[in-house]
């Protein structure tokens, strides 16, 4: 199989370097609040990284183009899947306002959940008393 394209080592190292750089960018950017652009920026950077992985690491750039076509087709169908589903779930209120948020009520099991601290241990309003009782047990 000597006729196969052998990518130079430099290319692979440059690709990995770019991926690390874009990872740093996406984490750094996440500390700023751009409102609804947060998602667009994060997905844009992720798509740049994914394209680099597919083209260079997965060799699609040098492959027979039928493989790239298949991969892009799968993404196109995923796009259709997302779009058509959102056309339903995003516009339910337009037909009948009662079904706009069919599942937006809080699940009933939350009614019986006690408030917890950041370690997941239950706390209640008399947290001072609770603390005293805890000490008695020890």
């Amino acid at each position: 199989m000597s006729e196969h394209h052998i990518t130079p080592l430099k290319t692979y190292l440059a690709v990995a370097g770019t991926l690390f750089f874009l990872t740093a960018v996406t984490v750094w950017v996440s500390y700023f609040d751009f409102g609804s652009f947060n998602i667009i920026i994060a997905m844009g950077v992720a798509t740049m990284k994914a394209s680099i992985v597919a083209l260079f690491f997965m060799h699609l750039l040098w492959d027979d183009k039928k493989n790239l076509t298949m991969f892009v087709m799968s993404l196109m169908f995923l796009g259709i899947f997302i779009t058509v589903t959102l056309l339903d779930t995003g516009f339910r209120g337009g037909v009948n306002s009662e079904v706009e948020y069919p599942i937006n009520n809080r699940a009933t099991f939350y009614d019986s959940l006690p408030l917890t601290d950041t370690h997941g241990h239950p706390v209640d309003e008399h947290s001072a008393d609770q603390h005293g009782e805890d000490e008695d047990h020890h």
């Binding site: 099991f109 959940l113 006690p114 408030l115 917890t116 601290d117 950041t118 997941g120």
Partner: peptide
Amino acid sequence: EYYSYMGP
């Protein structure tokens, strides 16, 4: 239903 975390 296994969810139980109610942190502040």
